[in-house]
Design a protein around this nucleic acid. Structure first.
Length: 215
DNA sequence: GGCCAGGACACCA
DNA sequence: TGGTGTCATGGC
């Protein structure tokens, strides 16, 4: 079974996951997606939504607003998302980077992955999430589920590092932004909804192609 | 009351 | 480079 068939299997089983604006080009919500990408680090999305709501209710949603806001106030507003002291600094730094561009559209269209990785607190997964979901650029996002599931399917070495896994997906899938977006969301869904909670699971959409005892 | 979530980084050997 | 500790809230 080819990797694209796994995608199709997951999509028909779970349906579209509705993660962030599912469009190919620039989204006016681009900066909001950047905020979400940082706030969701090791954090449940529900808590991220609370933090975003606090920012919105305080009128602090744009990167200019973030930049003007005192770091302690920022931390207090994003408290529900956890790690609030660290994340407040990260948002501040990211907003500073964006402000050096003409506007958010220009930032998302031209920012290089290495520049994002240069921001303290933005690692590979967050950088790729920003590039893919906010910038609609063809960077596949790898997370712990991706590594675990696909190495146990025998498609990846368990030793493979982040960039190797990213290359594997990008080299074996059509270069399609919407496909990348949906596939990553589906992998996360599979990882938490099926494989973790029910180690031996008849519902697993990959039961035909894997030994799901190992998930 | 424990576990985990749409991670990253500093520190150490 | 690989392992470990730290950051932290809220839902189940």
């Amino acid at each position: 079974m080819h990797i694209i068939d796994i995608y199709q299997t997951l999509l028909s089983h779970f349906g579209e996951q509705g993660w962030w604006p599912m469009q190919r080009g620039f989204s006016p919500k681009g900066w909001e997606v950047c905020l979400g990408a940082v706030l969701t680090q090791n954090t449940n999305w529900r808590n991220v939504e609370k933090a975003l709501a606090n920012l919105k209710n305080s009128g602090i949603l744009g990167y200019g607003d973030i930049l003007k806001t005192d770091i302690h106030k920022l931390a207090r507003l994003i408290k529900p998302s956890g790690y609030y002291n660290q994340k407040a600094k990260k948002l501040h730094e990211l907003a500073g980077l964006v402000s050096r561009y003409k506007n958010i559209s220009e930032f998302l269209r031209t920012i290089q992955r290495d520049e994002l990785l240069g921001v303290k607190g933005i690692g590979k997964e967050t950088a790729d999430s920003i590039l893919l979901y906010a910038g609609s650029r063809a960077h596949f996002v790898v997370d712990a589920y991706t590594k675990r599931i696909f190495s146990r399917l025998g498609l990846l070495s368990s030793e493979a590092d982040y960039d190797e896994i990213k290359c594997y997906f990008e080299n074996n899938l059509p270069r399609d932004v919407l496909l990348y977006k949906e596939f990553h969301a589906l992998i996360v869904r599979l990882g938490k909804d099926v494989c973790r909670k029910k180690p031996i699971c008849d519902l697993c959409p990959l039961s035909d192609i894997c030994d799901h005892d190992t998930f």
